[in-house]
Simulated scan of single mutants.
Amino acid sequence: MSDLNEVGERDNWICWLCDTPVDPDGSVNSDLGPSTDSYAAAKAKKGADVVERLAHRQCNTMRGKIAPVVPWSKDLFVVDPSPIFESVERLKAKGGREIVARCPDENDANQAAEWLLDRLSRLAPDSKFATEIKPGGGQFMLALRLDR
C-alpha cells in the first residue's frame, strides 16, 4: 500500500470520484478527509497490478454502496453526455470506441475532449485513452477509445 501523501501528490490532491479538491491536512476520519481507493488494474487476471487513487473518505465509502457517478464538468457545453464511469468500464472490457457526448461546435468539442482526457488520467491511471471529434448533423460528436 502506498503512502497517502504519495498518492495525493500524484493525483494533485483531487478526488478521482467527485473531481474536487481534497484537503491534504484534513483528518482521515473526516468525511472530506483524504483516503485511497485501491482497485485491480486488470480485474480479470490473477496477480493484477493494484492501482491506488485519491478520494474523499465519504466518496470512497459511498462507492462501496452504490456504483460511482463521475460527473461531467458544468463548465462544458455537452449534450447527452454518457456516464463516464460506465463508458470507461465498457471500453476497458471490450475495446472499440464509444460516442460519449455531442457538442454544438468544434471549440466546445475540443474543450470537452481535453477535459475528459485529463479526468480519465485520475479515473483510470492504468489506461491510456484517446478522443476523436467528428462533425455530423450540424454538431460535433466526441468519441472515446482505449489507446492500445
Results as ranks from 00 to 15, higher is better:
68 P>W: 05
139 Q>W: 12
66 I>H: 11
51 V>R: 01
72 W>T: 00
125 P>Y: 02
124 A>W: 02
83 P>V: 08
95 G>S: 04
135 P>T: 05
17 L>D: 04
73 S>D: 05
25 D>E: 15
64 G>S: 13
86 E>K: 11
26 G>S: 06
113 A>R: 01
108 D>A: 14
57 R>D: 07
41 A>C: 11
69 V>A: 11
36 T>P: 03
123 L>K: 08
95 G>K: 04
61 T>N: 15
10 R>V: 01
26 G>N: 04
18 C>Q: 02
26 G>Q: 03
13 W>A: 04
66 I>R: 14
138 G>L: 09
132 E>G: 03
138 G>Q: 09
88 V>F: 01
88 V>K: 00
13 W>K: 03
49 D>Q: 13
116 L>Q: 01
134 K>N: 13
100 V>R: 00
50 V>P: 00
79 V>W: 15
70 V>S: 02
79 V>S: 13
34 P>Y: 05
104 P>I: 09
73 S>F: 02
97 R>F: 12
97 R>L: 12
143 A>D: 06
97 R>Q: 14
136 G>W: 07
37 D>T: 15
130 A>E: 08
83 P>N: 11
21 P>G: 03
11 D>L: 03
29 N>A: 14
39 Y>R: 09
74 K>V: 12
34 P>V: 05
29 N>F: 13
3 D>E: 10
18 C>T: 02
